[in-house]
């Protein structure tokens, strides 16, 4: 099992929990488990099956977009964090 920290605006969909325990061996599996536990998150994390462009998943200090993306391995005890890119125009 790993844990994932939820960004403040999305905690409304995790009953206010900032950290959720998740299972999975890749980022994709972890996010799938997270969305299964808290279905309201799904539309804000994914669009057409792809991770939304502003959604970044970090393992420790590393953005998994700079690793292997959704197939980045996740180990037991890993600490993940969703950090949105804040952008406007």
């Amino acid at each position: 099992m790993a844990t994932i920290k939820i960004p403040t605006p999305l905690r409304a969909y995790t009953a206010g929990h900032a950290v959720v325990t998740v299972s999975g061996t890749t980022v994709a599996e972890v996010l799938s488990d997270l969305a299964a536990q808290h279905p309201g998150l799904k539309q804000h994390l994914f669009e057409g099956g792809e991770l939304r462009s502003f959604v970044n998943v970090f393992i420790g200090e590393d953005n998994t977009r700079d690793l292997q993306g959704l197939v980045t391995p996740v180990k037991d005890g890993d600490t993940l964090r969703i950090i949105p890119s804040i952008a406007g125009g």
Partner: peptide
Amino acid sequence: HRYLMDSGAFQAAEDYADANGFTLIGY
């Protein structure tokens, strides 16, 4: 016509808010 923050800025602001009993309200 475009604005983007470094992800570290979000992390720092959220950590500060969480640790001090505040809420990251918006931007």
